[in-house]
Design a protein around this nucleic acid. Structure first.
Lengths: 356, 356
DNA sequence: TATTTTCTCGTTAACGTTACCGAAAACTAT
DNA sequence: ATAGTTTTCGGTAACGTTAACGAGAAAATA
């Protein structure tokens, strides 16, 4: 009368043991695919496990097992010009905080994307210490490939984030499909302008990052637009500088010369373009498409200067990578080759709800 | 030499007890703010907890405590026309599966959104059983409000998903901001067409759902566009039917009469419009904006007929609600009023990466 | 046949926390 | 002083799983 809470007891290892007329030790051996079990009893236990759809209690397992997982995270250092990596680091920090009470130790190594020696240094450190896995955001292709090969020899699990490179890592790649990212920008462009439109592709401070990264995006963008057969006049301008005053000068001449209808900034530096049109309101603003949810970018988005930001959730990537390792080591799920991360479109009307 | 894994022992309740010269029982009493501890020892223990920044082991806690949390989920039944709720249910199922090994029992009640009696029935069932919390996707406003008040008296935690209603639930609301959702559609529209454009707002099978839901969206859409002062000619057409043949007739007359440049379908029924233009290729297709990542909708998106789908992650809502309750009851986090869910823009070029 | 090795499997102590059962100490009322 | 009550605390059995230890049976070797 008072309370009929059925107190549904969990169906656990003990119940399996009873049903199979064996000890829990044997059940454990079957569950963990260890030896010292005859084929007959192994089958008997497995059948019961399947029949009753046994689900292990993850809490108990993690409590029992000595969690000694050490993870190394190697990503580029945040600089003033590349706030992008700060986002990535934020996601990683969140992951670390969540995983720490479960006994996973994480160490983050930052390297300078303009100096390959710093990368070699941190990768050396990772090899020397006793890590179980390493998360890498690759910039220097060859050096990274060599490093990953070394890791494999040392039985160190590896996982790429942000951009993929030829040498397969053991656990795969978490990040966007770069070609599709470019195509999406092309798709948006096609909605903004019609036949004969002038389009300017802007590479700002290219050279600071993994080249392939940008080129794949541009490739996707161009092929998408060219296939529309709308006679778009597409130009590409490289601005190798980082400082606003220098970029401004270049922009001034480029914009005046080609008066584009659409400006496609291929990386996260779109905020300097935003600032340019904010400072020069006398110039008719083209549609502007850029990348990444950086504070400065969102600022010009909210001002109505930048029209679209395409975002690939760098924070989620970092978080996801750690979460993935947790599931791999602790929960023993064998989650292999994942889908690419979603590609988000952010405008002035939905940016305030982004990133839950 | 061989292995210097520091075997970092967790700092736990036992260590606190040793340092404070008390038993672990006493430490536990302090940690859980229970009585039967003198002020002196309570302070002593608390000081040590603070000094060493003790973090309880969530695994151990959840293992030890008798998890007897029962959750009731009340959402509309899935019908052929409203695959939307299937998505929501999918997310909930995923949440259930994840939480079940931790001893959380969930029961899902479906009601017919065309029949208020079915809602009353399941709400009555929930009240009579011994649940700890209830997740509600409200359709019938008054009845839901009355139900929530009853729950409060019975100390039953309540949480809304999908659409908010006046009576505050104890734990808040998880879902999109509806007005902003409409504004976003307006924003996209403004990129597609210029001055004097003709816009048709289409309510298909309105009446089957929470009215306020659609009206708030439309309100956001109209005010956004009107504020642009571009002399858009906006018309609204209600099609109260669900069957394609009936909808087709109505569409035929509406489209021929107003020849719109943009078609804004206010709910997830955009696929029937997609089918219409697929069947009638002789008619010039306007831009089409609709809602929700349903298979049928995505199909016409991939065919290039529907241009934009605005998605509010119904599956995430359900999942998030359960996850939230888990954190509330098990981890004792007091996560209060959340941000609205993100609003996503899906096109033919990013749909394949949606929903990780 | 006697001895060793291998193959099975049962037993049990952890893991960190919770909550119950009493014991001891400190008060209160006679 | 005695008996009863209350306050404060220690001890301990769970929770479900893992893994080390070792016992007994079967198989292989001498």
């Amino acid at each position: 009368m008072m309370s009929d809470d059925k107190e549904k007891k969990r169906f656990g290892i003990k119940d399996i043991a009873k049903l199979a007329n064996v000890s829990i030790g044997t059940v454990d051996r079957v569950l963990n695919n260890r030896k010292d079990v005859s084929e007959a009893t192994r089958k008997k236990v497995k059948d019961i496990i399947k029949e009753y759809n046994y689900q292990p209690n993850l809490y108990a397992r993690s409590l029992s097992v000595k969690n000694n997982i050490k993870i190394s995270v190697i990503i580029p250092k945040t600089s003033l010009q590349t706030g992008y990596w700060q986002l990535c680091l934020d996601g990683i920090s969140k992951g670390i905080q969540e995983l720490e009470p479960f006994g996973i130790q994480t160490e983050v190594f930052l390297y300078d994307q303009e100096d390959v020696h710093t990368f070699l240094e941190v990768s050396e450190k990772t090899i020397k210490s006793h890590f179980n896995a390493v998360v890498i955001a690759p910039i220097f292709i060859e050096e990274t490939e060599a490093f990953v090969k070394k890791c494999h020899r040392k039985k160190l699990q590896t996982i790429y984030i942000n951009s993929d490179i030829p040498t397969k890592s053991t656990l795969g790649y978490i990040g966007p499909d770069l070609n599709s990212t470019g195509r999406l920008a092309g798709n948006l462009t096609s909605y903004l302008v019609g036949t004969n439109a002038k389009i300017l592709i802007l590479n700002i401070a290219k050279g600071l990052e993994n080249y392939k990264y940008l080129d794949t995006k541009i490739e996707g963008y161009r092929t998408y637009l060219n296939n529309l057969n709308k006679n778009f006049r597409i130009e590409v301008v490289d601005i190798p500088y980082n400082e606003y005053t220098e970029v401004e000068k270049e922009l001034w001449t480029s914009i005046r010369k080609s008066t584009p209808d659409v400006l496609f900034v291929t990386n996260s530096r779109v905020s300097v373009v935003g600032r340019f049109f904010h400072d020069h309101q006398e110039i008719k603003k083209p549609y502007i498409i850029g990348f990444d949810f950086l504070e400065a970018n969102v600022d010009y988005l909210s001002k109505g200067i930048v029209d679209f930001l395409i975002c690939q959730r760098p924070d989620k990537q970092g978080y996801f990578a750690l979460n993935y390792l947790y599931r791999f080591f602790l929960l023993k799920e064998n989650v292999t080759n994942f889908k690419p991360m979603p590609i988000d479109i952010i405008t002035i009307e939905n940016y305030m709800f982004y990133e839950n």
